[in-house]
Simulated scan of single mutants.
Amino acid sequence: MSFHDVVFPSRLAFGATGGPERRVEIVRLASGLEQRNARWSRSRRRYTISTGIKSFADLHNLLEFFEERGGPLNAFRFLDPVDHGSVPPGEAIAPTDRAIGAGDSETVEYRLSLGGGRLVTKPIEGTVRVAVDGVELPGAEYTVDPLTGVVTLQTAPVAEAVVTAGFEFHVPVRFDNAHLALTQTAFAAGEIPEIQLVEVFE
């Protein structure tokens, strides 16, 4: 398994449906009560893309992207149209959006996170802003790994200083299709009924 640092084409992703999935085991007792057990510690995103009728050029680009990824073999980036930032769509990102850790005068590495155990591993380059105790750091005072979401500060924050960040991100996904069935619907157009994408836990 590996990750290809490319983004699923936005032109082909338009109209995608999907969102979080949680695996919860529910046992209904004879008394009518329930016992519920979370099988996953966090949610996993799933997406369905119904391409509709597209030009052969668009479908060729999709087939080429599928082949270059080895079908479901290699993961890639996908922009969730609703959930792709530290704030809801339409709101401005601020360096104080999300707490990502606390200083101890030694630690310089922090992981981007949305809270609730959901790590952000594929931030969008150039969007990450970082602050310590509410004061934004200049870009020269930290680096961000776009493939892991690890923020490295030049100077360790003092004990109990709150480290926060604002950012946009992609979801790492893979194809959940092993086969793409192309149908010609017109002289120079066709469709692939459904493309399934599933988030890859890292």
Rank of each mutant, 00 (worst) to 15 (best):
M1P: 04
S2H: 06
D5K: 12
F14G: 07
T17L: 11
G18C: 05
G18Y: 09
R23G: 01
V24W: 06
V24Y: 08
E25I: 02
I26W: 01
R28Q: 14
L29K: 14
L33K: 15
N37T: 14
N37Q: 06
R39P: 01
W40E: 12
W40F: 03
S43F: 01
S50M: 10
S50W: 00
F56R: 07
D58T: 04
L59P: 00
L59I: 00
L63G: 10
E64R: 13
F65K: 02
F65V: 00
F66W: 10
E67V: 07
E67K: 10
E68F: 11
G71F: 12
L73Q: 14
N74M: 11
A75R: 07
A75E: 07
F76E: 00
R77Q: 12
V82K: 12
H84D: 05
S86E: 07
S86T: 06
G90R: 08
A92L: 14
I93T: 13
A94W: 03
A94M: 11
A94H: 12
T96C: 00
D97P: 10
R98Q: 15
G103L: 02
D104I: 07
D104V: 06
S105I: 01
V108I: 14
E109G: 01
L112M: 04
L112A: 05
S113G: 08
S113P: 02
G116S: 11
L119M: 04
L119D: 02
P123D: 01
I124P: 09
E125A: 09
G126W: 08
V130Q: 02
A131I: 03
D133C: 07
G134P: 04
E136W: 03
L137W: 11
P138A: 12
P138M: 07
Y142Q: 08
P146S: 07
T148L: 05
V151H: 00
T152C: 09
T152W: 13
Q154I: 03
P157N: 10
V158I: 04
E160Y: 15
V163Q: 13
T164D: 07
F167N: 01
F167D: 00
F169T: 01
F169V: 03
F169Y: 15
H170G: 08
V171A: 06
A178S: 14
T185G: 00
T185A: 00
A186D: 13
A189V: 04
E191V: 01
I192S: 04
I192K: 08
I192M: 06
Q196G: 08
L197P: 03
V198C: 05
F201K: 13
E202F: 14
